Simulated scan of single mutants.
Amino acid sequence: MTVWDRPEPPARPVPLDRERIVAAAVALADEGGLEAVSLRKVAARLDAGPMRLYGYISTKEELFDLMVDEVYAEILPEEQPGDWREALRVHAHRTRQATLRHEWLADLLGGRPTLGPNALASTEFTLAALDGLADLDTVRRAVETVSAYVTGAIRREIANVRAERATGLSKREWQRAHGPHVTRMLATGRFPTLAKAVHDGREVDADESFTTGLDWVLDAVAAKLTQPPS
C-alpha cells in the first residue's frame, strides 16, 4: 500500500497530519537541502515525538515522495494551453522556477516516477498536450525527450548555483581566477575549436540558455510529429 493509499491514524491531542508533516519537511529542505530532512528533525519542527510520524510515514523515502508531490502542485499549470508546444514550454519553465525555489528538487528529478496525485496530474498534462498528434509511442518518447532536457538543464544550473555558494565566487570571479590556466592551455594549440568557442562565442545567462535549448528540443519534437509514419 502506498503512502497515498494508507489511512491516517486517529487524531491525537497535538494536531498532526501528513499535510503539516510535508510542509515542515519542505521548509527544512528549503533551508538546508535534503540532508537537513529526517523524521526526527521534522518531528522537532512540529513539536511532536518522532515515533508519532511513523503513523503517517514509514520511511524517509516516502517523505521525499510526498515532498516532491507537494512541489508538483506548484508546477502544474491551472489551464491546458491549446497549443502543444506552448503547453510543454509552460510546463518546462514552471518546473525550472519551482526547482529554483526548492533547490533540493533537482536531486530527486529524473528517477523513478512519483505516484502522487499532483505528479500524475503533471504527467497527464504533458501527455494530453500531444494526444492525437501522433501514435502513443511517439507521444511518450516526445514527452520523455523534453523531460530529459529539462531535468539535465535544471540539474546543471543548480550545480552552478551550489558551486557559487560553496566557493563564494560568482561565475565571473571564478572565470577570472582560472583565466590564466585556461589561457595557457589554449595557447598550446591543442584545443583550437575550444579556443574559438572561448574567444568568439557569445556569453548567455541561465534564462536564455534554458529557453534556447528548450526551443531546439521542441523544434526536434515538432519535426518528428510531422514525419509521415514509416
Score class of each variant (00 low, 15 high):
Lys196Gly: 06
Thr95Arg: 12
Glu62Gly: 05
Gly201Glu: 10
Lys60Ser: 15
Lys41Pro: 00
Val146Phe: 00
Arg89Val: 01
Ala187Pro: 10
Ala43Ile: 00
Ala106Ser: 11
Ala222Thr: 15
Thr212Ser: 09
Arg140Val: 10
Gly201Ser: 12
Leu225Thr: 10
Gly110Cys: 10
Arg140Asn: 12
Pro117Glu: 03
Glu144Val: 00
Pro228Leu: 06
Pro15Asp: 05
Leu34Phe: 08
Phe125Val: 01
Asp137Met: 05
Pro229His: 09
Gly116Asp: 12
Tyr54Asp: 12
Pro117Ser: 13
Ser38Leu: 07
His102Trp: 10
Leu133Glu: 13
Glu61Leu: 13
Glu157Asn: 03
Glu31Ser: 14
Phe125His: 10
Thr145Trp: 03
His178Ile: 01
Ile154Val: 14
Gln80Ala: 03
Ile75Arg: 04
Leu130Pro: 10
Gly116Thr: 07
Lys41Ser: 12
His102Ser: 02
Trp4Met: 06
Asp17Val: 00
Gly116His: 10
Leu66Ser: 01
Glu31Cys: 04
Val146Tyr: 01
Leu127Cys: 02
Thr99Phe: 06
Ser58Lys: 14
Ala44Asn: 14
Ala206Thr: 12
Leu34Trp: 06
Thr114Phe: 14
Phe64Glu: 14
Gly179Ile: 13
Ser170Pro: 08
His93Cys: 04
Ala44Lys: 09
Tyr54Arg: 09
Ala220Tyr: 15
Leu136Arg: 13
Leu136Asn: 11
Thr193Asp: 14
Met1Leu: 07
Glu144Asn: 07
Val204Cys: 01
Arg18Gln: 06
Ile75Gln: 04
Pro113Gln: 05
Ala187Leu: 10
Ala220Asn: 03
Arg202Pro: 02
Asp215Met: 11
Val217Gln: 11
Ser170Gly: 15
Ala159Cys: 02
Leu76Arg: 04
Ala128Met: 04
Arg12Thr: 15
Glu31Met: 02
Ile158Pro: 01
Met1Arg: 09
Ala44Asp: 15
Leu130Cys: 09
Met1Glu: 03
Arg18Ile: 13
Gly201Tyr: 05
Leu225Met: 13
Thr226His: 11
His102Thr: 03
Thr123Lys: 04
Leu194Tyr: 11
Arg176Lys: 14
Glu208Pro: 11
Leu108Asn: 02
Tyr72Met: 13
Thr123Gln: 02
Trp104Asp: 03
Leu186Asn: 03
Ser230Ile: 09
Arg20Pro: 00
Pro113Thr: 00
Gly201Pro: 12
Gly82Tyr: 07
Arg140Thr: 13
Arg141His: 04
Gly55Met: 08
Ala121Phe: 06
Thr151His: 12
Gly82Met: 07
Ala129Phe: 01
